[in-house]
């Protein structure tokens, strides 16, 4: 049943008091609805993914995550929440880990992006990937690529002297401890609860005892 005319929104939100029966018109979202169709805006962007130059013409709304997954078939980077609340989409851009869901692909002109596929392959695993297998640092596997990208970056961040919330001193070189790794990995949620094993995999790679 289609309406010819767009029905303007009329809200009857009941706050506080008893809710009986009310008729409310609720648009799916409250944003002003444009009367005319808006065409998608397409922009070109070029960046390097896992060492390979990629040129894409994308709807400006496309996140880096969706560019990787839907346009480049690199589905190792996962969409867990699409809102920066889980870390499954973690990739390494110009040497720094970020949430690829909260950045637009068009903002990455000229950047160098490393995804889980770029770290290693089944035939030639990255040491962190091998350590995750050895220590069973995963279960369902869905958060795993993000965990591994973060784990590689975390060890690098500690070596580069970036302090964390749990560093006892702000000015001393942080150490690779179980506490430091756990705090720094906290942006990667694993609902299967492999945390204890992930910490051990990281310690193994770092050459330290967890």
């Amino acid at each position: 049943m289609d309406f010819d005319e767009f029905t303007p929104s009329r809200r009857g939100v009941i706050v506080g008091g008893a809710v009986t029966v009310a008729v409310t018109t609720v648009p799916a979202v409250e944003a002003q609805v444009p009367r005319k169709q808006t065409m998608a805006h397409i922009e070109k962007v070029a960046f390097e993914v896992n060492g390979k130059r990629r040129e894409l013409a994308l709807d400006t709304r496309t996140t880096l995550l969706d560019a990787l997954r839907e346009h480049l078939d690199l589905t190792g980077t996962k969409k867990g929440c699409d809102h920066g609340q889980c870390g499954a989409c973690t990739v390494i851009v110009d040497g720094r880990r970020i949430n690829s869901c909260l950045t637009l692909a068009v903002m990455h002109e000229g950047d160098s992006i490393t995804t889980i596929e770029g770290l290693g392959t089944p035939e030639k695993l990255h040491p962190m990937q091998a350590a995750f297998i050895r220590h069973d640092g995963y279960q369902c596997g869905y958060c795993t690529p993000g965990q591994i990208c973060s784990a590689v970056s975390v060890l690098d961040e500690i070596r580069r002297g970036i302090p964390s919330h749990v560093s006892a001193s702000l000015t001393d070189q942080p150490q690779i401890t179980n506490f430091e790794m756990r705090e720094r990995m906290s942006g990667n949620i694993c609902r299967c609860g492999a945390y204890s094993n992930i910490a051990e995999a990281m310690a193994d790679v770092a050459g330290e005892k967890a």
Binding site: G84, G87, T90, R96, R97, I98, N99, L102, T103, S150, S153, V154, E157, P163, S164, H165, S167, R184, S186, G187, N188
Partner: peptide
């Protein structure tokens, strides 16, 4: 700053 968000978010 270090008490906020996550490493990934702080990088961006």
């Amino acid at each position: 700053l270090l008490a906020g968000a996550s490493g990934q978010l702080r990088n961006k």
